[in-house]
Design a protein around this nucleic acid. Structure first.
Lengths: 331, 331
DNA sequence: TTGTACGCGTTATCAC
DNA sequence: GTGATAACGCGTACAA
């Protein structure tokens, strides 16, 4: 493993000159530049980032914290970040927290000990005050899922409006007894629930508490269980809006298990437009978020923050879309 | 951001002593240890890893290269790695290559410039010679998917046997016209194809080239297309074995589209036991790999390599299992 | 245009 | 048990 010193000796120049060549400093003659580059190629020299980082106090590396890999939607978001990072010469790395508080904290440590220059959280299980405080000290932004009351730069969609739009579409299909599978622990889910309630109210439909089930994870299995519960009601719903496609897929499965066809007896609406919503039979209507754009924007916000640490937190809201498929009736 | 020097001054000791305390060196009196720790807590000091890394020439960080996030199966493998990494005080980070040669190369650069101590590849698009060479210079192992002819430590299952087992199970269900959707570019898929051929031969069934389609990606859409093609044959197959669950799910969808029920008219077999294989109706029989164990083993192999760089490449083969569901007839 | 010399924050090797 | 001090590899004032 050659060092800058060895390259300098071989090229007959000082380390300063080699450094200048490598950093495209204009104060170096074409002749010596070529001579140095020749040696660099010959010995296969690459600057040792450990030395460089220490000197520059920067790593040009950002970390993306993801609650769970194997999330179709978030994986698209990350691709957006990677694209944007390339144009800024930043290295994107990913760590999974599995919604574990101590795992997330130990990742955030990497900010404090300068292992990475900044971080993007695709959700968090930490309290808002802690996030606010961290964001004050380090470049930190949240993307697509964020924490209520945390004061830092965020980018996402208007979840309240998205919930409203989904329910509105069900209403337009003629459904009246609309249930929702949500999650009280997740801010975006709470907002979607708010939109659900607004749409009902606007349509003059009284809210029925039994139709709102809020203690479920975002899994296929949970969708089955929630659906089963809803169908046991004396007056079962004629439409079910779930805050994730996996949940919605579970709902569809259970409906069919009980002899009902999604889109005929009962409408089903999902969220995120992931593969599963296209794949199952019948296909599931869902809310689509602009994944790539979400990721790109998050990285831009972060880069801004890294350049101007004192800049204020901003919230960027991107547009969403409804994708209507076979699990809902057309109007 | 306090440095070791400031801590030393505040505690009235030398930086050497502070360093000793922080690194649990026994040559330090209980009294000074406590005094130093007190200051450390007070000022919230954390060692700057940039300085430490430079001095120790090590980052205690390993990188996992994943072709695509949102791979259910690989995400399980990574969890295994994370668990094992924690016991060894290693930080696991992840980067996605999207099967792009230059993206993969630029990640492997991180090995050369000492950004990370070692790397685990969950598949690669580089030629075997290049991988062999890299593994000679740096700690590098492959996991679950590996490259034919590349000489480095690997861990995976016996793909040939797995292919054989799956087809054998179809044969035992009474199927005779068994097709396979594979991929000539992927080593594990080639091995599974080999197993497919061996099972047919053993059963005395002549190989029908039209039944082997090999130019498809591992996607749902590709499964639909491949199935459509197979059903157009004058003598369509009565069973289809695909090298991924997504492919198999696409196959099922198309079968139903054409009025056939998987498990009745045509058997379908997938690979990896991912969520989709359980989720779709009917559920899909598949081959299950020991994800967590694969990840743990890969990290062990890598750690070995980091401790003994001269050690020879080894190949670890882990057992697989068949998971029989509704898409195949019981015998 | 180029070279010298220092410092980045830490650990390790000496002395004491 | 503790303290100076020299590395680690690099970038950059400053001098030439």
């Amino acid at each position: 493993m050659p060092t800058i010193k060895e390259v300098a000796k071989a090229a007959g120049v000082s380390v300063a000159t080699v450094s200048r060549v490598l950093n495209h400093d204009k104060n170096v003659s074409e002749k010596t530049r070529e001579r140095v580059m020749e040696v660099v190629r010959q010995v296969g020299y690459t600057p040792n980032v450990l030395g460089r980082n220490l000197r520059k106090k920067t790593t040009d590396r950002v970390l993306v914290l993801i609650p769970s890999l194997s999330n179709q939607f978030l994986s698209g978001v990350i691709r957006g970040m990677e694209m944007q990072a390339k144009t800024r010469n930043l290295q994107v790395m990913i760590s999974a927290t599995h919604n574990d508080v101590s795992a997330e904290r130990s990742c955030l440590e990497l900010l404090h000990n300068r292992s990475v220059d900044g971080m993007i959280l695709l959700g968090s299980v930490l309290p808002p005050e802690e996030l606010t405080q961290l964001a004050r000290e380090y470049p930190l932004v949240m993307c697509s899922e964020w924490t209520e009351g945390a004061d830092l730069p965020v980018v996402g969609i208007d979840n309240e409006q998205a919930g409203y739009d989904a329910v509105k579409s069900l209403l337009e299909g003629g459904r009246r007894r609309i249930a929702m599978i949500s999650n009280r622990e997740v801010y975006s889910a709470r907002l979607r629930t708010k939109g659900y309630l607004r749409a009902l109210q606007e349509a003059g439909i009284p809210f029925c508490p039994e139709y709102l089930v809020e203690h479920y994870e975002y899994t296929y299995r949970a969708g089955i269980l929630a659906c089963r519960k809803l169908l046991k009601l004396p007056q079962p719903p004629d439409a079910i809006f779930a805050v994730s496609d996996e949940l919605a897929a579970g709902v569809c499965k259970e409906l069919m298990e009980q002899g009902m066809l999604p889109g005929r007896e009962v409408d089903v609406f999902g969220f995120d437009n992931t593969t599963i919503s296209k794949v199952v039979t019948p296909s599931i209507s869902t809310v689509s978020q602009p994944r790539k754009k979400l990721g790109e924007t998050a990285l831009d916000l972060l880069a801004n923050r890294m350049e101007h640490p004192e800049s204020v937190g901003e919230a960027v809201i991107l547009p969403h879309e409804l994708v209507l498929r076979d699990s809902t009736r057309k109007k």
